[in-house]
Simulated scan of single mutants.
Amino acid sequence: MAKKYEIELPDSAFEKTDFSTNEELSLSVNHKQINIRPIKVRDQLPKINIFWYVIPAVILSAAFLIFVNLKSITTIPITGDDYSIANGALILGGCSGVLSFLVTFIVTKILGKGPSKDFYWRSLPTITIACGLIIAFSFSAIFWLFEQMFKGARFDIYTATCFIFVILAALNYIMINLALTLSSGVITNLLTIMIISGMLFSMLTNSSRDWWRYNFSFLGTAKNSTSFQFNITLIFTGLLMIALVDYLFVSIQKRYRGYKIQVLRWLLIMLAICIASIGIFPNNPQFHILHDRISMWLVYIMLILIIVVRWVLPEVTKQFLTVSYVIGVVMGAEYIVFKLTDYLSLTAFELFEFGLAFSWLLLLLQNIENLAQFGQNLFVIKIKPIDKK
Rank of each mutant, 00 (worst) to 15 (best):
W266A: 04
D156F: 08
N206P: 06
G94N: 02
K388Q: 09
N367L: 07
A272R: 01
F19C: 03
V58S: 12
G198C: 06
F67G: 00
K389L: 09
L268V: 04
Q373G: 12
L200K: 02
Q376H: 11
P38T: 11
F249K: 02
D156I: 06
L70I: 11
G279Q: 05
V308Y: 13
L267D: 02
D81S: 13
G238T: 08
L361A: 04
S251K: 15
F236H: 08
W360H: 13
S251R: 13
V323H: 05
S359D: 02
N231W: 06
I85M: 05
I386P: 05
W360L: 11
G332K: 02
L351D: 05
I142S: 04
F150Y: 15
W144S: 15
G97H: 04
F201M: 03
F165M: 10
S96Y: 04
K47R: 13
F228C: 05
S324C: 11
S184L: 07
G198K: 00
T21I: 14
I232C: 04
F228W: 13
K71C: 13
I386A: 08
L124N: 02
T233S: 12
N87R: 12
E6K: 15
L321D: 00
Y53P: 01
K117E: 09
E15V: 08
A13L: 14
K113S: 08
D246N: 14
T322L: 13
